[in-house]
Design a protein around this nucleic acid. Sequence first.
DNA 1: CGTTAGTGCAAAAACGATTTGCTCGCAAGC
DNA 2: GCTTGCGAGCAAATCGTTTTTGCACTAACG
Lengths: 364, 364
Amino acid sequence: MSSRTPRDGAPTIRDVAARAGVATATVSNVLTGRRSVGADKQRLVLEAVAALGYRPNHLAASLRRQQTRTIGIVVPDITNPFFTAIVRRIEEVAGAADYESVLVDCNESTVREGARLRALLARMIDGLIVAPTEDDLAAHAPLLPRLPSSVLIDRGFGTAGFDTVAADNNDAAWRGCRHLLELGHRDIALLASARELSNIRDRIAGYQRALAEAGCGGRARVVLGGHGVESSRAAIEQELRRADRPTAVFAVTYPATLGAVKAIRALDLACPDDVSLLGFDESDWMTVLRPYVSTILQPSELIADRAWQLISARLARSAAPFEHVRLPCMLAVRESTKPPPADAAARRHARRTEARHIKGRMIA
Amino acid sequence: MSSRTPRDGAPTIRDVAARAGVATATVSNVLTGRRSVGADKQRLVLEAVAALGYRPNHLAASLRRQQTRTIGIVVPDITNPFFTAIVRRIEEVAGAADYESVLVDCNESTVREGARLRALLARMIDGLIVAPTEDDLAAHAPLLPRLPSSVLIDRGFGTAGFDTVAADNNDAAWRGCRHLLELGHRDIALLASARELSNIRDRIAGYQRALAEAGCGGRARVVLGGHGVESSRAAIEQELRRADRPTAVFAVTYPATLGAVKAIRALDLACPDDVSLLGFDESDWMTVLRPYVSTILQPSELIADRAWQLISARLARSAAPFEHVRLPCMLAVRESTKPPPADAAARRHARRTEARHIKGRMIA
DNA sequence: CGTTAGTGCAAAAACGATTTGCTCGCAAGC
DNA sequence: GCTTGCGAGCAAATCGTTTTTGCACTAACG
């Protein structure tokens, strides 16, 4: 009956207008509420909409309005519960604001990140929340001018020109390290992934700061284990095999934490009797693991919330100066961190006096 | 210089055409390769594209072509590693085929699922891969006619008219239960989430089938613990508190598995000495948990791959009859399943004779 | 009583691509 | 030599909305 009822079946705004006997503009106004419409026409339109089961084509609206109500979420590894939680939360709050989220998992690969970012930008997404695989987004320089309003989360803060949201990594690592120092540890190995990430750099810095304040600035042992569980395990296992093995391991990454647990298991070391372990992030399974590992908890949901807030503001054309949010972490002291074994203290003492003996006045 | 160089900066196909001195149709033909274009014009267009840094607006193309090269992925809980793996894989293979994935996490809520599905459909996505929160998609009946080519994964196979991909749940549960039976267990509790899900129903059926084959059809104990870890823990804990507690627990869900571990811990039962545990799905953390829990491994990546294949075919307008793929699971026997304790056998014997005594000939 | 402001509606112009005809040469076939 | 066919290229229509513009009509104000 109406001018066009093609096989794809979806009625258009014109069908509605025709059926209601009004202009398409009126239908649009009724539906969007941008301009007032007389009560009678309003009723006619609504009836026609209901009768036809009309649902506006979001694509056409997006094209016209030049905004898609879609954001991109780019993470290096959705398998990491820290990112899983963030993705989940962002999807939730964005969805509540009627924004769709398109997901990209780059698998910690910069080239994949570039390719997928390119594809994303062609879609005219309105905003982007990204945890980059590298610290310098300039790796994707040709894309940068095209970037919609974006928020960087967790890492990659080497590139200026974005809002950023992250845990207060420096403080978190500082507090974690202090906790170990207060227990009496002096040989604390830090197990991190890679120095190219701003969050990791901050964590290393916090660790070193705590060490320096305790007068052990020279004892920093930073072990780089890469992004995976296995590479982390291998790296820290090697460190734990040494005669002067650390009395405590501070793993500052989720995979590193699991890697450290595995290494300690593999070497048949007792935790925390032989070696203390402090981790980063959390898995439900930790609650049933003995010892229940002490860990630093990042406020992942808060990070997601703030990221969404910032993107929201930018979407509303805010031209406020870039914000750099740092959220405090929680140190959860559980069972895996205890004072170092007595013989370790003795060993340390021996080594120290020996060193004094050798280097003589040089330490003074 | 060109007719329009607005502040949003993005050059359009018209800008390219103007600069190259050709019609927009020619630019389109060069870029899409649908029709042949003379070598000279081709060069001109390509130069103009490069000079302007032109990137086609995917939105406009989608509107015209009536396809967005976007699929939706709807899962009940992305926090569950089974779904995390699937989402990750689908995003990967879809991305490789230049499809974007928009993610929806329904948090096991049907109303949220409906709302988000509605929003998704308005976007003209080309395909949908969904693991529904309920068995019957008819809960969202008004949406059904609008559904693009969709594949159901894991569950919700109560609704006809879709391709489906899942683990062979019946067989998996059968094999799991047989494993426990062969170890000598006769009191095996099945910890599941809810009967409304086809996958759960299949698992229950497989469990019951194995029991029946072993002649213990009457001993089925199905415990329903809901979707969460805590509710599962509470449910199975209650069961384990009973005097005639089961000698083995078969948790057929990822959260149920963790819940069962927690319950066993909470009751201070020894696993597998007091009670055996067989789980479903897997977490990296299991490898460091003692006992290393035996479990059923679903082929999540294969499920994702097959789902994408099916969607792919439908996107290419295949009108083949609906396919129902069932993929075999792997039973990983590790440390948490052992023969039942001797006294349990004794108890069982006692109970049986007692029952005989009471019921007399009735059993015969 | 004339002017202004305000309201409600229809028509038309975006949005930025793809696709459909149509024209124009030019070469091959009869 | 005339027609047929084909490859190239262009103008215009199209996808389905939103938004602007212009018109007609009413109410209020000077």
